[in-house]
């Protein structure tokens, strides 16, 4: 068996983990499974593409690849802007849709169904705006470097892994060491008590939407960079994202990341062992097993 699947699994797993952190945070605070989360990945990727294109148009020098990577400064700059835009998109979606349903006291299933609708609308809008033809941030080709042990990776892949590690550490510190993180954990445990204790629950919810969508944008852009940008990019990752969030334990950031890597590695392993056509079944099997055997996940608190 070719050990390269480990590197492929790690890279895919890092993207899944990053997206799953957004899922686990929004799930634990908003208390419903937001099926439109995948669309934040796609929108993030396309927003980064659009902004990066605009930047490149304004200053051609920005598109010149930064050695050894395949992209120029226009992409990281565009990513920063796209994170804010995707966060804004999530806030708008919450304001026009979910906040209204919440204030009406709608049941969880209504919110879930609404998120399905939102997902469909957002995805169709992307296809309308950008067509369903795959797009790329850069046309530059990359040569994979040998890492030893039969593993190879492109500089872009290594950079993505590095960025993922940094982002996970930052989010973990945000949750455990800062006032807003403490408020998020308090709201996640007991929103009513959080209000009584003086926490502005609606502000925390807005913050969580923003962070979740921002992380989705990073994951989407990196997936777009390493594979390709398609309107279905996020939608196709939805099941792995939810598997990872639930395997990690809802609310746990390290859990979501580790579970993301587990899902990514399992998928890559399954491709090696039973064939590529089984890849998408892996997340499903993991999800079912976790729900049957350990519903609170690896790091979740007991119900």
């Amino acid at each position: 068996m070719n050990p390269q699947f480990i590197m492929d699994g790690l890279v895919a797993g890092a993207m899944i983990g990053l997206g799953a952190i957004g899922v686990t945070l929004t799930y634990s605070i908003l208390r419903f499974a937001n099926f439109a989360h995948g669309e934040f990945l796609s929108w993030g990727a396309y927003l980064a593409l659009a902004v990066s294109g605009a930047l490149g148009f304004l200053a051609t020098g920005l598109t010149r690849p930064i050695a050894p990577f395949s992209f120029g400064w226009s992409l990281p700059l565009a990513l920063v802007i796209a994170i804010f835009l995707t966060g804004l998109l999530a806030l708008v979606l919450d304001a026009v849709l979910f906040a209204r349903l919440r204030s009406r006291g709608s049941a969880v299933i209504i919110l879930v169904m609404a998120s399905f609708g939102a997902s469909l609308a957002l995805r169709s809008l992307l296809e309308f705006l950008f067509t369903s033809k795959p797009a790329y941030y850069t046309k530059a080709l990359q040569i994979a470097v040998r890492l030893g042990g039969g593993l190879r990776a492109t500089p872009d892949q290594l950079l993505s892994l590095g960025v993922t590690v940094v982002v996970v550490v930052v989010i973990h510190l945000l949750l455990t060491r800062t006032e807003i993180g403490r408020s998020m954990r308090a709201v996640s445990e007991n929103p009513a008590l959080a209000g009584i204790a003086g926490i502005d629950v609606r502000r925390v919810i807005r913050f969580v939407w923003f962070i979740g969508a921002g992380l989705a944008c990073i994951a989407g852009t990196m997936t777009g960079l390493l594979v390709q940008i398609r309107p279905y990019l996020g939608h196709d990752l939805l099941l792995p994202l939810f598997s990872a969030a639930i395997l990690g334990g809802i609310g746990s950031v390290p859990g979501a990341m580790i579970a993301g890597l587990i899902v990514g590695l399992s998928e890559a392993g399954a491709v090696q062992l039973v064939g590529a056509e089984w890849r998408s079944a892996v997340s499903f099997v993991i999800l079912v097993l976790v729900l049957l055997l350990r519903p609170r996940g690896l790091f979740g608190r007991p119900a």
């Binding site: 006032e179 403490r182 408020s183 954990r185 308090a186 445990e189 007991n190 008590l193 959080a194 204790a197 003086g198 926490i199 608190r301």
Partner: peptide, 20 residues
């Protein structure tokens, strides 16, 4: 009932109250 944040430490419970 449920008048404290059980998943937070004592110190964090007090910090939340003090944030006001």
């Amino acid at each position: 009932t449920e008048n404290i944040f059980a998943t937070l430490s004592i110190q964090e419970n007090l910090q939340i109250a003090a944030a006001v």
